[in-house]
């Protein structure tokens, strides 16, 4: 690994100042499960690595605010998210997604903010967060701003974070229409931990609005809504749902060069996983889970 300077700021102000000052020379270290691989293979070559795990504002933790909003600290690990009772109850799709990110060892280190900031199209937590309308809370020299997650991703490795901006938390707002029942599905090459060749979540609420988000089939995760109520309606036939799914998945553009799965397979699996996630979400909504 190429040498670099290690910085471990104790305050948010110091962290932001350092990131702003060093710009592209700096990389943020949270869980390190992606960064350290890339430091070793030389695909990133920072001058300074900024470990943000001791910045109080980014501390791990999942807190419920008044009105039902959940706030997840930036350095909260996948293990904590997958096990947290509120997440499991109210954001089931996220709990499921966090539980399949890598192995136990990876989940003990990998953070939610890291998973999002890498902006991997295959990030498993992104679809569930998208269907729950998650908001990224970022802090920069200009202060704090909130970015809807759908406005956060640009393409693989690139987000709309400004230079020097740091994610401090992820908020999962309470839905205006009661709770969203969600479910996550993915495809991998084996049952043991693997990168997703398709990752998808479905969220339903009592109004019949269906949100489907999916990744690993294009440069960034995609969120689509069904406002017709057809997907959500228990009485809908497969035939009725098909054109809606087709519209929802119309923007999937899987690479034909990927070695993890062929484009045709990924597109077909989107449809399979979409139906499966919908069925699970419907069952959860009905059960009041």
């Amino acid at each position: 690994m190429r040498p670099f300077t290690y910085a471990r700021p104790d305050t948010l102000a110091d962290a932001v100042a350092l990131l702003a000052e060093r710009g592209a020379e700096a990389r943020v270290l949270a869980g390190g499960t992606d960064l350290i691989i890339r430091l070793r293979d030389g695909s990133v070559r920072p001058e300074v690595v900024v470990d943000v795990k001791r910045v109080p504002e980014l501390a791990p933790g999942i807190r419920a605010r008044d009105g039902g909003m959940l706030v997840i600290g930036a350095t909260t690990t996948m293990t904590e998210i997958a096990a947290h009772p509120l997440i499991r109850r109210d954001v089931a799709g996220l709990a499921e997604a966090a539980a399949v990110v890598g192995s136990v060892q990876i989940r003990n280190r990998a953070t939610l903010a890291g998973n999002l900031c890498n902006a991997s199209p295959a990030a498993d937590t992104a679809p569930s967060l998208l269907v729950h309308g998650a908001v990224v809370v970022a802090h920069g020299l200009a202060g704090e701003r909130r970015i809807g997650l759908d406005d956060f991703f640009v393409r693989s490795g690139l987000t709309t974070l400004a230079p020097g901006e740091l994610v401090v938390a992820i908020e999962i707002p309470a839905s205006g229409h009661g709770r969203i029942a969600s479910a996550h599905q993915r495809r991998t090459r084996r049952r043991g931990h693997d990168l997703a060749s398709v990752t998808l979540a479905c969220g339903l609420d009592a109004t019949g609005l269906t949100r489907i988000a999916y990744g690993s089939v294009g440069p960034r995760p995609i969120l689509r809504l069904d406002t017709t109520g057809v997907l959500a309606a228990a009485a809908s036939t497969d035939e009725a749902r098909t054109p809606i799914f087709e519209a929802i998945f119309a923007d999937a553009t899987p690479s034909v060069r990927s070695m993890r799965a062929g484009a045709e397979y990924r597109l077909a699996m989107l449809r399979v996983l979409g139906r499966r996630a919908l069925a699970t979400a419907q069952a959860r909504l009905a059960a009041g889970e």
């Binding site: 090459r189 084996r190 049952r191 043991g192 931990h193 070695m259």
Partner: peptide, 9 residues
């Protein structure tokens, strides 16, 4: 990306 069986496979 070279996959071998894990305890889950």
């Amino acid at each position: 990306d070279y996959r071998i069986p894990t305890s889950m496979d």
